[in-house]
Amino acid sequence: MTELNTRQPTAPRNVSSLLASLGEQKRNCTVLVTGTPGGAIHLRAGLVVAVETPGAPTVEGLLLRSGRVTEEAWAAVCAADPHHDRTAAELAGRGLIGAGEFEVVCTAAVFDGAFALSLTTPESWEVSEAMPVVRSGRTVHPERLIRESSNRLAVLSDERGSAGERARSRVRRTPAAEAVEATPGRSARLQAVLDAADGRRTSRDIAFTLGRGLYPVLLDLKRLEDEGTIERETRAPAPGRPSTAPRSLPPRETLPDMAAPGGGELPRRVPGTNSLQPSESPGPPTAR
């Protein structure tokens, strides 16, 4: 792991090393990552409080697309709390969502955003002043976040392709899906994912459509692929080209709720050489 100190300032070799250094210094800052998809990692006292990226739904997206909170209600919350300092209290006070559920959604978004960032190699990064962000009071140690992202990559990678290939591929139903749809007791969650697999959407599109995290959607797609009800396109869309697939579905039964997931001076901008990967030292146990 690259160490940063005032006597011998050196640039961290990757985002993981940077987060470790910021954690040691207990920094309040935002790391801006450029690339595809790129994003922002927010830290308070060296701990991660939020991760935002176009590669996965944010807290706002999870709340609105899942139907937990309406757009009008969310706009009222943001107007009353423009700096996102009291979001949990505003939501609870308006009877929209309890503090506990809000914490679950925020924590899931942290792990999901970090996982989305780990699917590709960043081009560069920059450490800026701490930026306002929707968050709960819960924090995550950088090492735990990195280890969890690595675990998720391993779970989704097999002889049929890597996690990144799965995330970029468009998926479609197979003829076998018609028979499965009529099976009694079919999970509404799985059925919703199956319905969204129209041959135009990627896993990211489906996650945004359903208001669920990217990783749990990828797990469901892997299960559907194992049972033969969906197939992935062999030719994936170019990494730098966003999908234009529609992100809305015909009216259907209410979707189930998302489950929770198990100083020295720093360089302003440096080239990236690696994505989020575990460092050499072990961290706290990962919560799934």
Results as ranks from 00 to 15, higher is better:
217 V>L: 00
117 L>A: 09
231 E>M: 03
75 A>R: 15
84 H>M: 12
141 H>G: 00
227 E>S: 10
275 S>Q: 11
277 Q>K: 10
157 S>L: 07
197 A>V: 05
266 L>I: 11
270 V>N: 02
60 E>C: 03
226 D>R: 08
37 P>F: 09
185 G>P: 04
135 R>E: 00
207 A>T: 00
87 T>K: 02
161 G>I: 05
276 L>N: 07
172 R>C: 01
33 V>P: 04
164 G>N: 11
279 S>F: 01
73 A>H: 14
72 E>T: 14
2 T>A: 07
128 S>F: 02
66 S>N: 14
73 A>P: 03
285 P>W: 08
92 A>L: 06
179 A>K: 12
42 H>D: 04
119 L>K: 04
15 V>I: 15
258 M>I: 09
175 P>H: 10
161 G>M: 04
77 V>S: 01
113 G>H: 01
223 R>L: 15
186 R>T: 11
252 R>D: 04
82 P>W: 01
163 A>I: 11
95 G>E: 09
167 A>F: 08
76 A>V: 03
278 P>R: 08
4 L>M: 13
179 A>W: 07
184 P>R: 06
178 E>C: 05
176 A>E: 14
71 E>T: 14
85 D>E: 15
97 I>C: 10
3 E>T: 12
111 F>M: 07
65 R>G: 04
129 E>R: 14
250 P>N: 08
7 R>I: 08
46 G>L: 10
58 T>C: 00
104 V>P: 02
21 S>C: 15
231 E>K: 03
249 L>Q: 10
214 L>I: 11
